[in-house]
């Protein structure tokens, strides 16, 4: 053990650790929006699950405390309040997570849209980066912005 410790003390560890999945600018890799999507998928996933816990507790109010408390809670969501803004952010996270998740299920679980193996030829861009999932990824970003804006309209302007 002492020997191993001595050895690891002599080696420098440049491993970025958790910074790698919160910092999209850690490495500058061209032609790789998937990495941004990966980081956003994680961050939105964490936001969405924290929202989920709060949502389950808050929707328990009618059963726990009755409908009067529920009405008071709903009033917090009317107009621009801290609750409604946080709610709106959580909705955006869920929308992105769902849209990107559709692409991930297709690519990861079903291996669809990731191109097919080929003999490498110039300009040497991997089939994964040319596959249908790339189109889906761009569609994800576009749809996300549109849906989130629509949701903002529904929440704050109706």
């Amino acid at each position: 053990m002492a020997g191993r410790q001595g050895r690891s003390a002599r080696l420098l560890d440049l491993r970025p650790g958790w910074k790698a999945f919160v910092n999209p600018w850690l490495l500058r890799i061209a032609n790789n929006p998937e990495r941004l999507a990966f980081i956003m998928h994680r961050v939105t996933g964490v936001i969405a699950s924290l929202f989920l816990f709060l949502h389950i507790i808050s929707t328990n109010v009618p059963a726990r405390e009755g409908w009067e408390a529920w009405r008071e809670e709903v009033m917090n969501l009317q107009g621009l309040t801290l609750t409604s803004i946080l709610f709106y952010i959580a909705m955006g996270a869920i929308l992105f997570h769902g849209l990107n998740g559709t692409r991930l299920i297709l690519a990861e679980a079903l291996a669809l849209g990731i191109g097919r193996p080929e003999k490498p030829k110039p300009p040497y861009i991997a089939p994964l980066l040319r596959g249908f999932q790339r189109t889906l990824l761009y569609a994800t970003f576009v749809l996300w912005i549109i849906l989130w804006a629509l949701l903002g309209y529904v929440m704050f302007f109706t």
Partner: peptide, 13 residues
């Protein structure tokens, strides 16, 4: 908790 909010809900007065 989720089960309780569905099962234990009373009609609003």
């Amino acid at each position: 908790i989720a089960t309780h909010s569905v099962v234990g809900v009373e009609p609003p007065s």
